[in-house]
Amino acid sequence: MAGLRDYLLSPCGASQPSAEEFAAALERYAWFLPLHAAAERLSGETDPLVGLMAPWRGESSLCRAAVDADALTHLTSGEVIDRFLKEEDLRIVADETAPDTEVRTAPDLDDEDELVSEELAAVYLSQGLRDEAVAIYRKLSLLNPEKSIYFAELIEKTEKQ
């Protein structure tokens, strides 16, 4: 039974057990589906139990062909990529109807443009730079007239500190 166990655990690496050993194991462990799949593989005959019980499981690892590991390790990455691309045409090609626009990786800012936010003003306040924070709040008040009262209160509070 040890040879059968080794074969079931590693069908590609272990030696094939005898037909008597398989028959005895099938008689004793009739419920064990991998044993039926291995017997099906060795005999070449279809086992109705495997067809009945295994369609939801997909193909058993015992039914798959052995993988040639040496062939896989001797390939370079370029050869693997070429083989993959030859199987199907999976090349990424630019769309000819797409507009030719420049891809920007950084924002275009003029020297006159200045980034202002409440977070920047809070950073200035935490650093003790009250004048810079007040300047930021004034710019925000001009940019957001609907919040001008809010910013006026912040300016007054900051100037009193």
Rank of each mutant, 00 (worst) to 15 (best):
K160H: 07
A94D: 14
E132R: 10
D82V: 01
T97M: 01
E159A: 11
L142V: 10
A25N: 04
A54M: 13
E118N: 00
R104P: 03
R130V: 12
S18G: 15
E156Q: 14
L8I: 11
D113Q: 11
Q161M: 05
G58Y: 12
A152Y: 14
D113H: 14
D6Y: 07
D70C: 08
A121S: 06
D110A: 13
Q16A: 08
H74L: 03
A2K: 00
A24G: 09
A38V: 06
L143E: 10
V67W: 15
L72P: 09
V123R: 05
P34W: 15
E159Q: 13
S117K: 01
S43H: 13
Y137P: 01
A71T: 07
Y7K: 01
A94I: 04
Y124W: 11
C63H: 15
A39E: 08
T97A: 10
S77P: 02
E119V: 06
A135M: 05
D95V: 01
L72M: 10
D111W: 08
L33I: 15
D131H: 14
A135T: 09
A65T: 09
E119F: 09
P34M: 13
E146A: 15
V116K: 06
A66P: 07
P107S: 03
L90I: 07
E59W: 07
R91H: 15
A39G: 02
A23F: 12
A25F: 00
K160V: 04
A94E: 13
P48Q: 04
E21H: 04
P17A: 12
A122R: 08
F84R: 02
M53S: 08
E156I: 04
C12K: 11
E21L: 07
L109E: 15
E40L: 01
L142A: 14
G78H: 07
A14E: 10
A71W: 13
K157A: 05
L143M: 11
S61H: 11
A121W: 07
L75V: 06
A152L: 07
E21F: 00
E153S: 04
A152E: 11
Y7T: 02
V93E: 15
M1N: 03
L4S: 05
E27Y: 05
G13Q: 12
G3L: 01
N144W: 06
A25S: 03
E27H: 05
H74P: 00
I81P: 00
S141R: 08
V80G: 05
A135C: 07
V134A: 06
A38Y: 10
Q127T: 02
I92F: 15
E146P: 02
V67G: 09
F32H: 11
L115G: 13
R138N: 11
T158P: 03
